[in-house]
Every structure is written in structure tokens, then in C-alpha cells.
Simulated scan of single mutants.
Amino acid sequence: MTVLKLLPTIHIHPILIIFLFIGFITGTFMEIIILLAIVLFHEIGHYIMAISFKWRIKSITLWVFGGVMDTDEHGNRPTYEEALVSIAGPFQHVFIYLFIMIVAPMNVIPISIMELIVYYNNVILLFNLLPVWPLDGGKCLFTLLSTYVPYKRAHTIMILTSVLVSICILFTQLFILPFTLSSVFILLFILLENRTEWKQRYYVFLRFLSRRFYGTNHAKKTSLIKVSNSNTLFDVFSLFIRERKHIIYISYHDGQETSIDEWDCLRSYFQDKHYNITVDEVKRMD
């Protein structure tokens, strides 16, 4: 594999182009370049860790104070992989601090530029640790939640938490802290990203289920799920937790119980195309 094939495709988000233009006409172009360099270094950390796990990376999109690595792997890989990929970006800032500590005594870079590097390194690091999707803190929150809470519910909690935190920060920026247009633009962009994620939540959940059926479950332990015989397959799937194999106990009104494996439910849904039947009907066809 050549070096060029290892390099990611990098896109510049339109909002970043606007900021670059504003920086050029207002004389803050150096600040924007420093910020962009730190963001790119941050995203390269994610990328290197992801390709070390053989993730399929489509591209990296850079925007102000962050970037987005386009991949379908989130939610379908082992949790330790997703945690390491999410943490790899913020960890890059440690190397920037080390670089500053080594270079500062040499006086090869003007103090004003060194101060800007330290400032933006702090801001980008802290900003990306916020529990907001699609920032690293939001991805870590989702990984943690989906380890203990059903995937579908964890995804919903993550989006609602992201929106709530973003709105709180936006109101703080508008009415308490000194107003900056850039902060408002960034927060509005994040809210739009969460709106898109909310609209795609059904697709995200189906992708999670299809990977369990067609791919690898990465199950570490077995969990029991108790449902009524009148529950649909989708009701059952809504209780699935990552990295667990589920045994489904079906209870009847007369007090009887029976069990069915999750594989039979997934096969009925994805292979046999039984989208609207109950779990009891799946058991009877088994």
C-alpha cells in the first residue's frame, strides 16, 4: 500500500471557508491557520487509530474548532476500539503541549504565536471533550451509555443530551458571556448536526441490527430479555445492548413462558422479511 493510499480524503466545511475569508479581511488569518493546523493534527490522531483497527474511513471534514471523520463503523465495532478512536484525537493535544515545552526555551517562534498556539490548543481540547455529538465527548458518552443501556435508547439519550448542553451553552454565550459570532455559528452548526442525527436515528438503529445479523456481534456475555407474546420484533430489538447475546423469554397471559434466541428474531426480520409480526409468531414458525 502506497503512502498516498494511507492518507485520508480531507474536505473543508463551508463554514470554515467563511471563517478563513473573515480572517483574511480582518487581519486574523494567522489565528485561523493555527486553529486549522491544530484541528487537522487532532483529526489525524483519530484517523491513525481508526486505520490501525482497519476501519473504513471515507473522508475527514474540517470545520472551526473540530472535524468529522466520516465512517460507518461507530456503533458497530467493539467498545474498546470506539473509545480509543475517540480518545486518540484529544490525546494529540498532549504532543502539542510537549512541542511547546521543547520549542519555547529556544526562542525560535515569537512569543505571541506561542501564546496563540497554547490558547487554541486549550480551547479545542476542552471544546471537544463536551458531552455533545459529534464531538469526542459525545462519542465517548454514547459508547459508555450503549455498553449498559439498550442501543436505541442510548442513541436517543445521547442526542437529547447533546441538544440540551448545546442550548445551555448557546444561552450562556448570548446572555452571560461576551458575545462572539463565531461561537454562535459553531453551536448552531452542532444543533443542526444533532437534528440530522435525530432524523437518521431509525437508519442508525437498523444499521446496528443488520451488523449483528450479517456481521459480528462482539458479544462478551449473555443477557436475558423478558417480553410479552404480543410484542413485535422491533419491540424486542429496541432492548438489545451492544456486545451482548440475548436470550428472549416470552411470557403469555396464562403464566406460561418460552424462550427464543435473538438470532431467530434477526433472521426472521432481515432474511425472511417479516417486519410486522410478533415475537410469538416467530417462535411458532421456528
Rank of each mutant, 00 (worst) to 15 (best):
D280A: 07
I241Q: 06
Y97P: 00
K273P: 00
V103L: 05
R211E: 09
H42P: 06
H246P: 09
T26K: 15
L98Q: 06
S268V: 00
E243R: 15
L187C: 02
C168Y: 11
L130H: 11
I260K: 06
H155E: 01
M49N: 04
S223T: 07
F185V: 10
W63R: 02
Y119A: 06
L145C: 04
P78V: 03
E73W: 07
I33F: 08
I117L: 09
R56S: 09
I157K: 11
Q92T: 13
A104D: 07
G66L: 13
E73H: 13
V149P: 08
I32K: 08
L116H: 05
L4R: 12
R211A: 09
R77K: 15
P90E: 02
K58A: 03
L6S: 10
T79I: 14
T196N: 11
P90N: 12
W63P: 03
N107R: 14
V204Y: 15
I15K: 02
Y97A: 08
A83P: 02
S86E: 01
G137I: 03
L141N: 01
I33L: 11
L177S: 12
E257K: 13
P131R: 08
F189D: 03
K152Y: 14
Q173Y: 04
I25Y: 11
M114V: 04
L129R: 13
S183R: 06
P14S: 08
A88I: 10
F142R: 12
S230H: 07
F234V: 01
D272M: 14
Y252F: 13
F213P: 00
R207F: 01
F142W: 11
V3E: 01
N231V: 01
